[in-house]
Design a protein around this nucleic acid. Structure first.
Length: 215
DNA sequence: AACTCGGGGCA
DNA sequence: TGCCCAGAGTT
């Protein structure tokens, strides 16, 4: 069994029900929720979108909102000014350039205001089941610790991960890494003693050897 | 590559 | 009270 296969199997056993934490019912809602989730927790996003999607469930209802009104609706989430502006502009571009339909390819998604490679990847994978590898801070950090990617940009990390894992594993692996990153492989004080993949982890090896040297 | 946007949740 | 959170645009 290769290292990547081992990592995948171990994480799958550790987090049997890893999935997207954002609440949504349509690709459009997922797009909006993902735009809102930048530097915010999925819980706080869900709390805001629960009422928002009740009153404004689709693009046409969003188009009735002014930028200031969107701002007011999402004020409880951080970075709300940028996000409101981007969502406002994104809705209009979606309407006139794409006939109100969320694009199903990376290039068009990334042309939308406020949509970068991470958000585009999430929409492709979650809403359309099109293979893509979203790289957030968790994936970035863990791929480096595990020695899966030494790249310094999210774009390159995404490419590295896609090269190392078969396509059909990308979707679940993405959720496994995020779940792992929140529960165990945290940015600060990672809980290596509790980690199920520490035996194949470069970071753990380094820490382990260093602690032995310090004896 | 560095800087900026940012309120809420949680310890 | 302080720290951190499913990023993207601009310079």
């Amino acid at each position: 069994m290769t290292k990547t296969e081992k990592i995948y199997e171990l994480l799958k056993d550790t987090y049997p029900d890893a999935k997207c934490g954002l609440d949504y019912t349509t690709p459009f809602q997922l797009l909006v929720s993902t735009m809102l989730s930048a530097q915010a927790t999925d819980k706080s996003v869900n709390k805001v979108t629960e009422e928002l999607y009740m009153q404004y469930p689709d693009l046409d209802s969003f188009l009735k909102l002014s930028q200031d009104e969107i701002e007011e609706k999402i004020r409880k989430i951080g970075l709300y000014k940028n996000k409101a502006k981007n969502i406002y502009l994104m809705c209009r571009e979606l309407k006139c350039k794409y006939n109100g339909v969320v694009p199903q390819n990376m290039e068009d998604l990334m042309k939308l205001p406020g949509v970068g490679r991470k958000t585009a990847s999430v929409v492709l994978v979650e809403a359309f089941h099109i293979p893509a590898f979203p790289v957030d801070t968790h994936v970035f950090r863990i791929s480096r610790r595990l020695g899966l990617s030494k790249s310094t940009t999210a774009d390159k990390v995404s490419d590295d991960m896609m090269k190392k894992f078969p396509k059909y594993k990308w979707h679940l692996l993405h959720h496994l890494l995020i779940t792992h990153g929140r529960a165990t492989c945290t940015a600060k004080k990672p809980k290596c003693p509790d980690c199920s993949v520490r035996d194949v982890c470069d970071y753990y090896k380094k820490v382990h050897i260093n602690s032995l040297n310090n004896l």
